[in-house]
Design a protein around this nucleic acid. Structure first.
Lengths: 214, 214, 214, 214
DNA sequence: TATGAATGAGGATTCATTCAT
DNA sequence: CATGAATGAATCCTCATTCAT
């Protein structure tokens, strides 16, 4: 199953064009998986939505499971890259001079926005993660390890500058991620009465600043 | 996690309305739904595990969906009741005198412990909540509305006493729940290197205190 | 897959009645496998011929492969038992006194007749034997070992009496079986111009007698 | 068994009408049909093995069935020619002078050797012959009629010389073919404990001689 | 000549559910 | 109350074949 994804990634990276039908299939399956969940979506559903014969799906992706990987993995890793402020990370001077507070203010709104947009894909990821042993390995290991490591570097840096409490990196990161994730999720579920306003985010940042102050 | 199953078993066994076979079915389905997920569990699986004819399931519960409700709803509401510090809530004097910090310290460890034990059931709830339109109505409305309202009262009370920032109740509650949930989930997944220690929880409480301080 | 057959054999042996539908399925599948071959027969074909829902087949037999075993193995082993002159074998006195020539004359016509009747089942057996690795083990080992051993005893006995050439048992047995099998097969295929007459069989017996005379 | 494939390859390669791809297809299909059987081999299998696009197969052979004919028929007829001692048949003087015993001794070992080598191809033939109505006509009529007629001539000749019993040609031929076929088959299946020795074949010839002696 | 994308009917098998006993 | 035989629609997947390039 690595092979299909490898092959798929190569195709994409080499700009070898996926056939139009393959793209239709990927789009349709992504949409349906997000709407109804992976296991509630039949390959026939997908073939109908993509206006394609059912056989075509298997010709290209081999199995429904492979199709899941092919459709969500590229997006998930793209999404992860977007969520990590890579440009800032590489700019050591910037990180040395900026305050934790300003850093959050510059970085978080954009991340929250992006996270909200990809939330449906992460929902698919989550659902499969929860119960599918086989998928857990593929998805978990493949995706988030790198991301976490990069974020820990930032935490360490602000700790060294004395702007963050001296707790373990994992804990601090967990507090930040929990808080942001909680916000994004509640937003997307329409739990908050007010549509996301600047004050919401302002509160969130204040909460993190104060909560993690030494 | 054993505890809640234990408790459930007792409840079920003491309920004279339920025949022994019905009890077996409820126990088996709860276990299997928790292990494999609702849609990955067939009624045949359940009948095997409960040592019961497949027909018997439908005789008593009518449909697989009904069986889901019958097995998880009682537990979910029980779990919710456990999570809400009802006895404290009713004790107005106590709430007036205790500091927010002490309140968290007295209340959170127990809640975290309980939440961790019930996590598997909440996992079932979550999965179905995410995709099953029909179930969403049944489960959502039925379950957590009450709980949230009760918790908001506590938040309001501490806000009035000047121990919490003057942000909307929902926001404050969200910060608290996100943080606690994040902790419980990461614990149960074995993400934290250290097994849950008192310092972990101490940090968590400090984080909330400081973060929500006026 | 052993289990299904074991279970099936027990049912049959205990005269626990197979349900009427199960019998219909067995009869229909036997017929169709014989007519069209195993892999050219779909489970839908069988369900139609047996006037049964397709699910019923799998309810009882689990898989198409199991159905093959369940339908042909009992017949094959019965057929083998019929082919071996068991009653004569147990009668040592008879075997000591009878000549090889008379023995063939008394035994062969009946065997040839029986073999011809079961030829279609043996055709199924043969086809699967030729290409299906998995089936080879099940069918080969399960079926003919015993039979061969019993027949060798007879050969040994006539050799000791000086009525058969002193060649290895396997060789002598092979000559006999090849000759008889060749006759039965050519009969059933209508290759022989004359329908099977007594002279045919008489020639066959003369051929064996003379060919194997010391 | 390698030899016939070798021979086939040479034939195919020397045939200028066939493109290299067609040659690859024929070789690959022959190999796969022999190994797995015709109906267990998919055109995709063949295209993979021949390193050819699936479409190419149909471009040249039109259907899978045609491919079967194209691949095995030339070999079968070649094999038949090899099995019939054509050079001896044409040499009437030789046949008049040689004894049946010597004839067998000169002819059989070579035939047995050849038959063993081609057995896999005959296995394909047999399997299809058993169940495929459509193929039966194509294969049966096309192939063995000539062969049988030629062999009958030899039988007739030896009968006239008084070296064979006066039974119908078909019967005598059947005894011979059954015996030889039985030997070849049991050899190729590894049933015989001793690898094929000269004494085996010697016994076989003695058996035929004595059995068919007037 | 050769490709390989696309097809859709057909394959075995699983599933939740019904019903007579 | 409990059974388990029976159902048939739905599921994932395979197959031989077609066709535009």
């Amino acid at each position: 199953m690595d092979s299909i994804f490898e092959l798929f990634r190569q195709k994409v990276e080499n700009n070898e064009k996926l056939t139009p039908k393959m793209q239709d299939i990927l789009e349709a399956s992504l949409l349906l998986f997000a709407e109804q969940g992976y296991s509630n979506t039949s390959t026939k559903d997908i073939s109908r939505a993509a206006q394609v014969a059912e056989g075509t799906i298997f010709k290209h992706f081999g199995s429904k499971e492979n199709l899941l990987y092919a459709s969500i993995l590229p997006i998930l890793s793209q999404s992860l890259e977007d969520l990590i402020p890579a440009n800032l990370l590489s700019n050591k001077d910037y990180l040395q001079t900026v305050s934790f507070s300003d850093f959050l203010r510059q970085v978080l709104p954009e991340r929250i926005n992006l996270a909200g947009k990809n939330l449906k894909i992460w929902k698919i990821y989550l659902t499969e993660y929860l119960y599918q042993e086989s998928m857990r390995d593929n998805l978990v290991t493949l995706v988030p390890k790198v991301a976490v490591d990069e974020l820990k570097q930032i935490v360490t840096l602000f700790k060294e500058k004395g702007e963050l409490v001296d707790w373990p990196d994992e804990e601090i990161l967990r507090f930040i991620i929990s808080t942001v994730a909680g916000y994004v999720i509640s937003q997307s579920m329409g739990f908050s009465s007010s549509s996301q306003s600047d004050t919401d985010i302002d509160h969130l940042i204040q909460f993190l600043e104060k909560g993690l102050h030494p």
